[in-house]
């Protein structure tokens, strides 16, 4: 059982390209449909928890499902499984990449690729913007985050915490308004 848990998350780590959200269907397929480690409802809970806690969704869901199946040792095995493919592949690439980075054609290609990456980040920002609640407070916070970090006025962590505190105050004031 413990080996299956490790191996399943190893496969999930190995076959998902392009970040955490690409993993969700795989996780559902194995953990809910094939091995029945968790129910559909629990799966939805895990996604909600993974989205409300820091860290990559892949790690969060591996830890949670591993715990459900086999306690703390299960969560350690599942997390190790999902991390190991990256650790191995990227270490190999890092060793390999060093030999090619001074090649002039590689540098030409990467000059283009950096522009592609700027587009990827811009699209990620647009995608996340579309998922937000469109209320006045959101626009204000977007502007705050944008300007403070663009002009390097405050450290990123502080800006994130300020956003969170404003969010809590807003929710508490709103809740009190509804009580009255």
């Amino acid at each position: 059982m413990q080996f299956i848990l490790f191996w399943t998350f190893f496969k999930i780590g190995l076959f998902t390209f392009g970040g955490g959200y690409a993993m969700i269907p795989f996780i559902h397929q194995y953990a809910v449909e094939k091995y029945k480690w968790i129910t559909d409802d629990e799966f939805l809970d895990i996604i909600a928890i993974a989205e409300s806690t820091p860290g990559p969704i892949a790690i969060n869901s591996a830890t949670y499902i591993g715990y459900k199946v086999k306690g703390v040792s299960g969560s350690a095995l599942a997390t190790l499984g999902v991390v190991l493919p990256s650790l191995i592949i990227i270490t190999l690439i890092a060793a390999f990449f060093m030999q090619f980075k001074d090649n002039v054609y590689v540098e030409f290609a990467f000059k283009g690729i950096r522009i592609g990456v700027a587009v990827l980040v811009l699209n990620a920002a647009i995608r996340m913007y579309k998922k937000l609640d469109k209320k006045l407070l959101s626009y204000f916070l977007i502007l705050i985050g944008f300007l403070l970090v663009l002009f390097e006025l405050l450290p990123v962590i502080l800006v994130i915490v300020i956003g969170g505190v404003i969010g809590i105050i807003y929710q508490l004031v709103k809740a009190r308004g509804e009580e009255v």
């Binding site: 609640d133 407070l137 959101s138 626009y139 916070l141 705050i144 985050g145 956003g163 969010g167």
Partner: peptide, 12 residues
């Protein structure tokens, strides 16, 4: 609810 919009701004 506060962190998400701030992060969108930061990513922009």
């Amino acid at each position: 609810s506060g962190v998400k919009p701030v992060i969108v701004g930061i990513i922009f």
